[in-house]
Design a binder for these strands. Structure first.
Lengths: 217, 217
DNA sequence: CGCTACAAGATTGTCAACAATATGACCAGC
DNA sequence: GCTGGTCATATTGTTGACAATCTTGTAGCG
């Protein structure tokens, strides 16, 4: 009876299953294209099938899960071409966010940016790609949030969720963090200088380089 | 009792309810912030509550419906600020699409563009804002599809769905179609000239003008 | 008169059983 | 040996009932 106790009683079964599943997918615990059988998930999470089903539907609309009628759900595999498309969209949207962040960011957020830049430099000189990848993620998130553009933030979070696997692969590539770092520092500089145009250009340059790296797979 | 053509049950039931509901919302048949009670909708559409529920969840993820735990669903009202944010995102994404369309469009699509341009000019000289608004929509859709950027297309369709009310209001504004027309013609010219840079610039200029118009509400 | 507590009604969330459908193995016929 | 059909099984889709939760109206109390 592997029924796990659900934590907060206020937490609804569907939300619990959703969080649990999403984390499992994002952490790569599910093999690519792995089959997600409702009954199995229901039992292992200690919720009913209906809850798992609802969670799977949500994840489908988030683009993390692929679902075929009467055939079941699988974790969606993002091909390189799709990853490129997604990154092109990120280029457009993060460019917008960076420009807005340059004018809208609070001084505290600028300080945070500076700190992140230093941490990233350190991670690179330490040769720690995992930490660097996480800081990278944090940096992009900070810029998004500083923009105050809620709509773009929502879209970007969805897009980013689909890229976990590729991002991870990219970070481990030798030499990649070094190039990425200088591009990131340029973005930080532009925002700190409160120059929207330069910030947008810098972000686009960075993501353009990401696209090149993706294509080199 | 209103016997519908395709009621009852089956997978079609959910799709039927979804289409029906979406149309009702997009056509403005639901008052802003109107309450959407699952039971009522189920009865009036002749489907089960589960189907309505599934449809409502879908519409929620599309951003057309707002849903609060244990409190029900309501049609989401998009404030002017949100409409501006959405249009800013459209500016970024449609700019991308226009640039790609300039290089990727087939000759047949270019001809379609030309035709749409003529039809739009006619609608304006005829003083027919409703037709113009529809053609406007068609034009943006054509550009999206010609870009071949599936990811951006998906995002844009979702964003556009949320703007129906504002778009309608905008089209009826005196003088607005005239200004909009010239901007649209510029976009068409740039794409036909296969000039990505000019196409992106023209789209951004157009949507920037839309934002101004929205703010003047 | 205003405020809190409580109960009734309405509405959504969850569940377990049932139906529909696709998958894969097996077998007959050529 | 291969093709085509048939059936058993696994899995998803659907349904109606039940539980949890919120809202509203009302009465009691200060």
């Amino acid at each position: 009876m592997p029924k796990e106790a659900r934590p907060g009683s206020g937490e609804q079964a569907k939300q619990y299953a959703l969080e649990r599943l999403r984390k499992a997918i994002l952490r790569g615990e599910m093999a690519p294209a792995q089959r997600l059988v409702e009954n199995e998930l229901a039992e292992s999470y200690g919720v009913t099938r209906a809850s798992v089903r609802a969670a799977l539907l949500d994840l489908t609309s988030e683009g993390l899960v692929e679902r075929i009628r009467n055939r079941g759900s699988r974790v969606r595999v993002v091909t390189v071409e799709e990853a490129v498309e997604i990154t092109e969209c990120r280029m457009a949207l993060e460019g917008l966010c960076a420009a807005k962040a340059a004018t809208e960011a609070t001084d505290a957020q600028l300080d945070e940016l500076t700190g992140l830049g230093k941490a990233m430099s350190k991670a690179v000189t330490d040769g720690d790609p995992v930490t660097y990848s996480e800081l990278n993620h944090d940096l992009h998130a900070l810029i998004r949030n500083a923009s105050g553009q809620h709509t773009a933030v929502g879209l970007l979070e969805r897009l980013n969720a689909q890229l976990v696997r590729h991002r991870f692969q990219l970070a481990l590539r030798p030499g990649r963090p070094q190039q990425s770092l200088s591009e990131h520092l340029a973005v930080i500089e532009a925002i700190r200088a409160r120059d929207p145009q330069a910030a947008e250009t810098a972000v686009r340059a960075h993501l353009s380089s990401v696209i090149d790296a993706l294509r080199a797979d």
